[in-house]
Amino acid sequence: MSAQSDDGVHDLGCPSGLDLALLAAGELDEARGAAIGAHAAPCRRCAERLREIEEARAELFGKDPGAIAAAARFIAAEVHERADDAPIDPDAHFGDRFDH
């Protein structure tokens, strides 16, 4: 599942933040989700990351039932507004590209 140690640098044995995000969004298959969930429950670092995602959910959607629709309208308007601008590569950093 992760994190471990194809390099000897990162040796936490924890799933990555992306794995935990996929778990929280329900995007992992059953076996992988169960494995990561079993690791995360007793792991302080991973439980903290999952708690941050749940806090974010509460903050973004919790109090205002129209929050999702409002955010979607804002994003749609931005996309419409910027459709004719020079395209931004989502991978770009200040206009440069990965140098591989």
Partner: peptide, 29 residues
Amino acid sequence: AVDAAGIAQLYEKYAPAIYAHCRRLLGSS
């Protein structure tokens, strides 16, 4: 068309994880 209903679906599902990731990196809500 920019499909706002489709965006809402993506946002509802993924915004919490993306927001939490950005907040961890940036330290500011």
